[in-house]
């Protein structure tokens, strides 16, 4: 686990100095759980792409006369109270989950990186003060209330949930990036660039941002998980997905069914959600282990 305690034992430098990335890739490839979880995530991604391409999941909205049917060859997970095929809906929801996860993860990571870099680079000066204040403000507003408020302000715009998530999720990334940038600023290569008169923006974009990529990658996976988990709660509260279907909508649909002893909808959506979130969490952990520069093995 903790190789740092053995520094006394193995201080000798490696024969070839590998780059951080090839080392990380090598380490990740050797991580069995990491690889297994990546495989699961890729299977889900495949399902999502298939839905997107119209290969499957096309019947998610088709009504059939059989209501609350048990699992059968025709309806693998049965049907819901409207007679819609639960398996089709769960499959289609995979696409919804990836849409939400990717959009929110990518946008909030970019926003967090930019804000964090500016904040860290101008640490202690007014741009930093403003960003810190904004982070404090956003972190102090209860999340569900904020989403509701954004939904109000955008008057039912279909992506108001996405906007609200991006607007709040970037703060963690920004905090980590800021700390890393402040650390990097003290390094010789940055000071050297300063001494050579390289413009500040160029130093940020060429020397500092690239060195925070490992943080951004890990943060993006964490944000992805947060986004699809939040979607479930928000959809239940009526603040989430507006068009189409999602695991959150399925679960909130199922709250009326479980009281009558019909669990298929609930179990199907829960299982799809749980496996993806679990795999993504493990993937994120493995990624973090592989990219952690402190854990040189």
């Amino acid at each position: 686990m903790n190789a740092t305690t053995t520094t006394e034992a193995a201080p000798a430098p490696r024969k070839q100095s590998e780059s951080l990335w090839s080392k990380a890739v090598g380490k990740f490839l050797r991580d069995r759980w990491g690889m297994a979880s990546l495989l699961v995530v890729l299977v889900y991604l495949g399902i999502a792409l298939g839905v997107w391409a119209g290969l499957w999941g096309t019947d998610w909205n088709t009504l059939t006369p059989t209501i609350n049917a048990e699992a059968s060859a025709e309806h693998w997970f049965g049907t819901n109270r409207n007679g819609q095929d639960i398996f089709e809906r769960a499959i289609f929801s995979t696409k919804t989950a990836f849409e939400i996860g990717l959009v929110v993860a990518i946008l909030s990571t970019i926003l967090g990186a930019v804000m964090g870099a500016i904040s860290g680079f101008f640490a202690g000066r007014w741009p930093d003060e403003i960003i810190l204040w904004l982070k404090g403000v956003l972190d102090s507003i209860p999340f569900y209330l904020f989403v509701a408020a954004v939904a109000f302000a955008l008057q039912g715009y279909a992506f108001s949930m996405h906007v609200a998530m991006v607007a709040t999720f970037w703060t963690t990334t920004a905090r980590l990036v800021r700390a890393e940038v402040i650390r990097l600023k003290g390094f010789e290569f940055v000071e050297a660039a300063h001494a050579l008169g390289v413009p500040e923006l160029r130093i940020i974009s060429r020397h500092i941002i690239p060195n925070t990529t490992h943080i951004l990658l890990v943060q993006a996976t964490i944000t992805f998980v947060s986004a699809i988990k939040s979607e479930v709660i928000l959809s239940f509260l009526g603040l989430g997905v507006k068009n189409g279907v999602s695991w959150g909508l399925m679960i909130s649909e199922s709250t009326n069914e479980v009281t009558t002893g019909f669990f298929n909808n609930f179990l199907a959506a829960s299982a799809f959600l749980f496996v993806l979130v679990m795999a993504f969490n493990m993937f994120s952990d493995a990624l973090q282990d592989a990219l952690d520069p402190k854990k040189t093995g």
């Binding site: 190789a3 305690t5 053995t6 006394e8 034992a9 193995a10 380490k27 854990k295 093995g297």
Partner: peptide, 11 residues
């Protein structure tokens, strides 16, 4: 001995 990522090191 110490177990490291790269194998057993006999310190």
């Amino acid at each position: 001995e110490f177990a490291t990522d790269r194998g057993i090191a006999r310190a």
